[in-house]
Deep mutational scan, measured.
Amino acid sequence: TRVETATETAWISLVTALHLVLGLSAVLGLLLLRKQFPAHYRRLRHALW
């Protein structure tokens, strides 16, 4: 049972790390898009919101 708990903890930390990386890359991508293609960014924002 101890090994299972350790594996679960590892999976949870892995998933958390993946979510963090995905969130950060999404934010960075949006910032880059905003900087380089303001028109595209505006259109995207209108489409999303």
Results as ranks from 00 to 15, higher is better:
residue 38 P to N: 14
residue 5 T to Q: 02
residue 31 L to T: 11
residue 8 E to T: 10
residue 31 L to M: 11
residue 4 E to H: 08
residue 34 R to P: 07
residue 9 T to D: 07
residue 46 H to Q: 13
residue 46 H to C: 15
residue 25 S to V: 11
residue 27 V to G: 11
residue 44 L to C: 05
residue 6 A to G: 14
residue 33 L to C: 13
residue 12 I to Y: 11
residue 1 T to E: 05
residue 28 L to A: 15
residue 19 H to G: 14
residue 1 T to Q: 07
residue 35 K to R: 12
residue 23 G to C: 10
residue 31 L to Q: 07
residue 23 G to H: 00
residue 28 L to I: 14
residue 10 A to E: 08
residue 41 Y to G: 08
residue 36 Q to C: 15
residue 2 R to L: 12
residue 38 P to Q: 15
residue 49 W to C: 14
residue 17 A to I: 07
residue 13 S to P: 05
residue 26 A to D: 01
residue 14 L to A: 11
residue 22 L to D: 00
residue 20 L to D: 01
residue 1 T to I: 13
residue 3 V to Y: 05
residue 43 R to M: 15
residue 40 H to G: 12
residue 35 K to L: 10
residue 49 W to V: 07
residue 4 E to C: 02
residue 5 T to Y: 00
residue 6 A to L: 03
residue 15 V to A: 05
residue 2 R to H: 09
residue 35 K to H: 09
residue 33 L to K: 06
residue 45 R to E: 05
residue 10 A to G: 10
residue 38 P to L: 15
residue 24 L to C: 03
residue 31 L to W: 14
residue 16 T to V: 14
residue 7 T to M: 10
residue 11 W to V: 11
residue 25 S to N: 04
residue 13 S to L: 06
residue 11 W to I: 05
residue 41 Y to Q: 09
residue 19 H to Q: 15
residue 17 A to T: 07
residue 41 Y to L: 15
residue 35 K to W: 13
residue 8 E to F: 06
residue 15 V to M: 05
residue 6 A to R: 07
residue 11 W to S: 10
residue 18 L to S: 05
residue 12 I to V: 06
residue 2 R to P: 10
residue 25 S to R: 01
residue 3 V to H: 00
residue 20 L to A: 14
residue 12 I to S: 05
residue 31 L to E: 00
residue 23 G to S: 05
residue 23 G to M: 14
residue 4 E to T: 06
residue 27 V to Q: 04
residue 8 E to M: 00
residue 18 L to F: 05
residue 13 S to Y: 11
residue 1 T to K: 07
residue 38 P to S: 15
residue 30 L to R: 05
residue 33 L to F: 14
residue 35 K to F: 14
residue 5 T to W: 02
residue 39 A to G: 07
residue 4 E to M: 04
residue 18 L to N: 01
residue 39 A to R: 04
residue 41 Y to E: 04
residue 10 A to R: 06
residue 42 R to E: 11
residue 47 A to N: 06
residue 3 V to R: 01
residue 3 V to F: 01
residue 22 L to I: 11
residue 40 H to E: 04
residue 3 V to T: 01
residue 21 V to A: 08
residue 27 V to T: 05
residue 43 R to D: 03
residue 8 E to W: 09
residue 35 K to I: 10
residue 41 Y to P: 09
residue 49 W to N: 13
residue 10 A to N: 03
residue 45 R to L: 13
residue 12 I to H: 06
residue 41 Y to V: 14
residue 21 V to M: 09
residue 4 E to N: 08
residue 30 L to S: 08
residue 19 H to L: 15
residue 41 Y to I: 14
residue 11 W to Y: 11
residue 2 R to T: 14
residue 17 A to D: 01
residue 49 W to R: 13
residue 39 A to V: 10
residue 38 P to A: 15
residue 26 A to L: 14
residue 49 W to K: 14
residue 5 T to E: 06
residue 19 H to F: 15
residue 7 T to G: 14
residue 17 A to P: 01
residue 35 K to N: 14
residue 30 L to Y: 15
residue 44 L to E: 02
residue 26 A to T: 03
residue 1 T to R: 03
residue 29 G to D: 00
residue 16 T to I: 13
residue 6 A to T: 13
residue 1 T to M: 10
residue 37 F to P: 03
residue 26 A to W: 02
residue 47 A to D: 08
residue 18 L to T: 05
residue 2 R to F: 14
residue 26 A to K: 03
residue 46 H to T: 13
residue 28 L to E: 00
residue 25 S to E: 00
residue 44 L to V: 07
residue 23 G to I: 11
residue 11 W to H: 08
residue 32 L to F: 14
residue 15 V to P: 05
residue 28 L to N: 01
residue 26 A to F: 06
residue 13 S to T: 07
residue 35 K to G: 05
residue 30 L to D: 00
residue 33 L to G: 05
residue 31 L to A: 08
residue 3 V to L: 03
residue 31 L to V: 14
residue 33 L to D: 01
residue 30 L to M: 09
residue 7 T to F: 10
residue 4 E to Q: 03
residue 5 T to A: 04
residue 7 T to R: 09
residue 41 Y to K: 09
residue 49 W to L: 10
residue 45 R to K: 12
residue 14 L to F: 11
residue 48 L to R: 05
residue 29 G to N: 00
residue 34 R to Q: 08
residue 26 A to N: 01
residue 28 L to Y: 11
residue 23 G to W: 06
residue 37 F to I: 15
residue 18 L to V: 07
residue 40 H to R: 06
residue 24 L to V: 07
residue 47 A to Y: 13
residue 37 F to C: 15
residue 36 Q to Y: 13
residue 36 Q to D: 11
residue 48 L to E: 02
residue 24 L to A: 14
residue 40 H to M: 15
residue 31 L to D: 01
residue 34 R to N: 08
residue 40 H to Q: 15
residue 19 H to N: 08
residue 42 R to Y: 08
residue 25 S to G: 12
residue 29 G to S: 08
residue 38 P to D: 10
residue 32 L to P: 02
residue 45 R to Y: 06
residue 29 G to W: 06
residue 38 P to R: 15
residue 10 A to H: 14
residue 18 L to I: 12
residue 45 R to T: 09
residue 22 L to V: 09
residue 20 L to P: 07
residue 43 R to I: 06
residue 11 W to T: 10
residue 14 L to I: 03
residue 16 T to F: 08
residue 40 H to S: 04
residue 18 L to C: 10
residue 11 W to L: 13
residue 43 R to E: 04
residue 29 G to H: 02
residue 17 A to G: 08
residue 12 I to K: 08
residue 4 E to V: 11
residue 43 R to W: 09
residue 47 A to T: 04
residue 44 L to Q: 01
residue 16 T to M: 12
residue 6 A to S: 13
residue 17 A to V: 09
residue 44 L to N: 07
residue 10 A to T: 08
residue 8 E to G: 10
residue 3 V to A: 01
residue 3 V to P: 00
